[in-house]
Design a protein around this nucleic acid. Structure first.
Lengths: 345, 345
DNA sequence: CTGAAAGCGCTTACAG
DNA sequence: CTGAAAGCGCTTACAG
């Protein structure tokens, strides 16, 4: 039982060195209780001495199953997804699953490429945030086909686009509805919204919630203060600049994601205006920096860390029980109206 | 050549359906130029019709080499690492490499577990940010042994702790030196520093740069305004509160990472003070929110996106040319003294 | 409790 | 240009 002098030690080397068969070594690795204590100890010693660690590749091939979970996310540098991803990692790590990462940059081509990779890698399950609203584009079938071709189940996160798989997302429509109502109760009659494009499912959800809220509050819809661009900082920035020039000004503004909120604030700030003096404001998602600095910031809070954790749990459950009915989990976003005073700049 | 009706289509199914051998199918997958055009077209048709995609697991085992790169990062929700990770993903994606992700939470145990996983997964190469300063802990050999046991080369990123592998990091010492000098030139003689712990390599680097700067400027070192906690928000917050109570106040403060800067600003803000009226301030790393809002913020800028891209490039190069000499790449951090005016809160 | 053998889905050196 | 065969490093049903 001298040290094995080889670069890549395999199960055969261990078996030989311990004077047993590969099968027995494999058993101490997988079901040690089946192996006689003395043989087991001997084998374990050889394994330890040689720092042997079995190849996941070989095991996966043999078992016809992999131990890695795939995750496809738009972009990790947006805090919402960063925290989502951390939640995911916490649970996969606890369950000794590896994590294969791919970003799709909200881009259809990259998304397809990512899906193909997950396929080829035979991931055990996939956590999937679709890049775009494929339903709108008439590409839903193509995507569904790709999901069906995967080796494991899929959970679709954050964006519900009608895919046949488990889903988990926030109730953005309701949250928006409540935001509008809160503003209306506060006396606001002209409530602007800066939102993403009509192709985006979430933007539509949020738009509908906004309309719900107006109707419920008896406020007429005014297209001139409904702004739709994309979910990027720069688009929100220029729409805000436009808004500021409007004859008939809104008194309150709702911004539909983090980047939009930032673009909005930047434009306001640059113009020498301040919140809430110029407009009452409610943003979607917290902005960490404001929170850390203790600056009150009205927003809809969505716990994306929790979202990530729950998503993995559902996926693991689905892997264990493939036949149970598909589920849609809806998480509640919470309206956080702090002091109704934003940073005074 | 009817559609194959099976759940998991393999190369044998394709071969059979196309009336050729597995070897030939494999060739059209790997080196199509070796295959006769007509046979190739026939095979390609069958592949497409059946949406066949070869198993990376089987291929990896057969080729004795994997197509995934591992990455071990402290935490993705810190913007510095989030952007680093995006840089990494961009390059791996371009090179059709998959990315196996693990976080270590700046925690030794998780770090070891992550390394073991990378071993077992036989990653082609590893991008590694060590959780802690193992040299200090006398565990360098253990870590080195783990790195040596990996299937591929390693690039150590952001923290140089004396590991035998390629390295890339920022010249923090020089950046700190320059920050101190800039403040001294501006007339400051009492320059405080809020820094991470002595166990942390980077904290030591930064500390040394600070001392260099003082010496060069003929300023005596004053221990009472050198604060060392950890790199967390809360620690910086309480140290700042302490600092504010000091008899002999500093006139300028340097904070040694993002979280520390935030804790510092929060404490300053809460006390009703403002920057730069109370203290001139230089932080390490940008703070996105301040930047977006157009609020001037003196800081040392480190492009972590670039760091990530370069790291992968070096790793890919090392994989291609294993025998070339190990390299240490030092990136320059840049002092950005905007208007020397920070947010007025 | 243990071993020999077949098999997982590929690749590739070899022969033709 | 193509195929048969061996091999990659495991697991597991089967026999003993």
């Amino acid at each position: 039982m001298a040290k094995i002098s080889k670069a890549n030690i395999t199960i055969s080397d261990i078996a030989e060195s311990a004077g047993v068969s590969k099968a027995t070594v494999s058993r101490v690795l997988n079901s040690p209780e089946l192996v006689d204590e003395k043989t087991r100890e001997k084998i374990e010693k050889v394994i330890k001495e040689n720092h042997y660690s079995p190849s996941a590749t070989a095991r996966n091939l043999s078992k016809q199953i992999s131990s890695t979970i795939g995750v496809i996310v738009p972009e990790i540098s947006n805090t919402f997804f960063g925290e989502l991803f951390e939640g995911i990692e916490e649970i996969t790590n606890k369950n000794n699953l590896s994590l294969l990462y791919c970003s799709n940059d909200d881009n259809k081509e990259k998304d397809f490429k990512a899906l193909d990779m997950m396929r080829t890698q035979r991931v055990r399950g996939l956590i999937y945030i679709p890049a775009v609203n494929y339903k709108e584009l008439g590409l839903l079938k193509q995507v569904q086909q790709r999901l069906d071709g995967l080796a494991g189940p899929v959970i679709c996160v954050d964006r519900s686009i009608g895919l046949r798989c488990d889903e988990i997302y926030f109730n953005d429509r309701k949250a928006m509805y409540e935001a509008v109502k809160a503003l209306a109760v506060d006396g606001h009659k002209r409530i602007a919204i800066i939102n993403g494009s009509k192709q985006n499912v979430l933007a539509e959800e949020r738009h509908n919630g906004y309309i719900d809220g107006l109707k419920e509050s008896g406020i007429e819809v005014d297209e001139s203060i409904i702004f739709r661009g994309d979910y990027k900082y720069s688009s929100a920035y220029s729409m805000t600049k436009q808004m500021i020039k409007l004859e008939n000004q809104p008194t309150a503004v709702i911004t539909c994601n983090n980047s939009i909120s930032k673009g909005f604030l930047k434009a306001i700030y640059e113009t020498g205006k301040s919140i809430p003096d110029a407009y009452m404001h409610i943003g979607l998602d917290k902005i960490e920096m404001l929170n850390l600095l203790g600056i009150p910031y009205n927003h809809i809070e969505r716990d994306s860390y929790e979202l990530g954790k729950r998503a993995v749990e559902i996926l693991i459950n689905r892997i264990a029980f493939p036949e149970t009915k598909l589920q849609q989990v809806v998480l509640q976003a919470e309206l956080e109206l702090q002091t109704c005073r934003l940073v005074k700049m």
